[in-house]
Simulated scan of single mutants.
Amino acid sequence: MADIAALTALIEPEVKALGFDLVRIKLFGSGDERTLQIMAERPETKQLVIEDCAALSRRLSDVMDEADPIEEAYRLEVSSPGIDRPLTRLHDFVEWGGFEARITVTEAVEGRKTFKGMLGGVDDSDGVLFTDTKAGAVVIPFALIDGAKLVLTDALISATMPLSSEGADDIETEG
């Protein structure tokens, strides 16, 4: 299995060279179904458009072919994080404060390993401030977070309006 830290060191400079921020690198699947997923975003919009994904995919394909860091065959998937995005960096928990999220941890925090509630930011010791719907206020150490993502809500949809509706008038709908 490829080393995610080594992949990050190879991929992140290429992502940054195109003006994007790296959100996540994930290698999953096995055999012919292995996928290397790269999520990136424009810092100013927190999204990518299809042309951004295509440009990044072309650039990464060339770099990955040259370096060949993954022994097994794999499919490269480049995407925007989407509305119900994963929260992978400490600053994600600050930027998306006030929105609903689900968090899983590697070790129990206050007797629980899964949480659902509102993000409240980050404290001085890199603890994620969280108000769980069942447990109330809790501080979740960032180092213990196994997975976190925003929950699709009306508030989140309103806050992440599409970058462009160009071409929307050209879409035919059935009436």
Rank of each mutant, 00 (worst) to 15 (best):
G82D: 09
L36S: 04
P81Q: 05
S57N: 14
C53A: 14
G19I: 02
F99W: 04
D84Q: 06
L27T: 12
V109H: 01
G82N: 10
V63H: 08
D62I: 08
V105H: 08
E51P: 00
E14R: 07
L76Q: 09
T88R: 11
A54F: 12
G29D: 06
V109E: 06
V49W: 01
P81A: 04
L90Y: 12
K16Q: 10
R34Q: 12
R24D: 13
A54G: 06
G19L: 07
P81R: 00
L18S: 01
V105E: 03
P86T: 03
T104A: 15
R85H: 09
Y74T: 06
R59T: 07
C53V: 12
L87G: 00
T88Q: 10
P81L: 00
F20L: 04
V94L: 15
L48K: 01
C53Q: 14
R75Q: 09
E41Q: 13
P86I: 02
E66W: 08
L76C: 09
G31I: 08
W96D: 10
P69T: 05
R59Q: 12
S61G: 14
E44H: 09
D62C: 03
R75L: 13
I70T: 10
D68G: 12
V23L: 04
E41T: 07
E41H: 00
E77L: 05
R42T: 12
D32M: 10
